[in-house]
């Protein structure tokens, strides 16, 4: 078992796809990096924190992007975003069987905030273009940085979300919420609270991810294979169903609960028996809860 969370981006690419099949566009040797970091005294990276290219998954052609959380938390800047958009537009042209996003990102790279914000919105539109053309977009979330901010929105704009129990998917990071509204609102150092609020188990129980897997590269590969032909239709009916689900969830959860009871109250209302046990269960145990 090899931890997906502990692999850097290129190792994930090497181990997830068929051996030797990943072919990178604009690899580090081409030195395509951010023009904005030097003035902040921040070192740049020759891939701007993302590798994009084509690969094979069990022989089938796919396009892929892997964000490198080790560089600026996987933040999306001008160049990083443009590489994602270029890969997605190329998918529209060349029609691979699917596009996979190996998300590892805190969202917009604040060091080039304005350019990053626009870039993430361009990624969103490009993802939806690819889906509208009938090519599924799959996102894998299981890194130490998780998938936050604009990338958390992008993830939910895809067809299929795979997470591990150590993965996190959300909008604002706990640190940002704590900095804005105080430690009483969200204690960013309370790891159990952070995972109950944003972690893979919670996202699985609430249906925000489609598959929950162990923190294991082989498990992610199997999940990606299972997801290859999964499409979430973009129709008015599908949007109405999503709207009903989200409205119902909002009405289920009373306001004013504290951090110790909030997630457990929501899980109970979703029909989970003995919700207080969830944090102690292993992945198989949590998976069984939703199937039941």
């Amino acid at each position: 078992m090899i931890s997906y969370a502990e692999c850097p981006a290129r190792e994930r690419l090497a181990r997830l796809f068929d051996a030797g099949s990943f072919h990178e566009w604009l690899p580090p040797a081409e030195r395509v990096s951010s023009p904005h970091l030097a003035q902040l005294g921040v070192p740049k990276s020759f891939d701007d924190g993302v590798a994009v290219g084509r690969a094979r998954l069990d022989g089938r052609p796919v396009f892929v992007a892997a964000q490198e959380g080790g560089f600026m938390g996987g933040g999306v800047g001008e160049v990083h975003g443009a590489k994602l958009v270029g890969m997605l537009r190329r998918a529209l042209r060349d029609r691979p069987d699917a596009v996979l996003l190996l998300a590892d990102s805190g969202g917009v790279r604040l060091h080039e905030a304005n350019a990053g914000l626009i870039a993430v919105s361009e990624v969103m539109r490009a993802v939806l273009d690819v889906r509208a053309a009938g090519i599924p977009v799959i996102v894998l979330i299981g890194s130490a940085n998780g998938c936050f901010g604009g990338m958390g929105i992008v993830a939910r704009c895809t067809d299929f979300v795979v997470m591990s129990d150590v993965g996190r998917l959300a909008m604002s990071g706990p640190e940002v919420i704590e900095a804005s509204h105080g430690v009483e609102e969200f204690d960013a150092r309370d790891r159990a609270l952070v995972w109950r609020t944003t972690g893979g188990k919670h996202r699985w129980l609430s249906g925000d991810c489609d598959l929950l897997v162990e923190d294991d590269v082989a498990a992610f590969r199997a999940a990606a294979l299972a997801a290859l032909d999964q499409r979430r239709p973009m129709t008015l009916e599908a949007l109405e169903a999503e709207h009903a689900l989200l409205s119902e969830r909002l009405n289920r959860l009373p306001e004013g609960l504290d951090g110790d009871e909030e997630a457990i109250t929501l899980w109970r209302s979703l029909g989970i028996a003995e919700p207080a046990r969830v944090p102690d269960l292993d992945v198989d145990g949590v998976r069984a809860l939703r199937a039941a």
Binding site: M171, E242, H243
Partner: peptide, 25 residues
């Protein structure tokens, strides 16, 4: 976005994505 723990628990990123996808549609 609303910077609240409750909204994060409720999947604010999914609600935002839904709004964006409605506009896109």
């Amino acid at each position: 976005q609303q910077l609240r723990r409750r909204d994060e628990l409720l999947g604010i990123n999914r609600a935002m994505a839904h709004l964006g996808m409605c506009i896109d549609q």
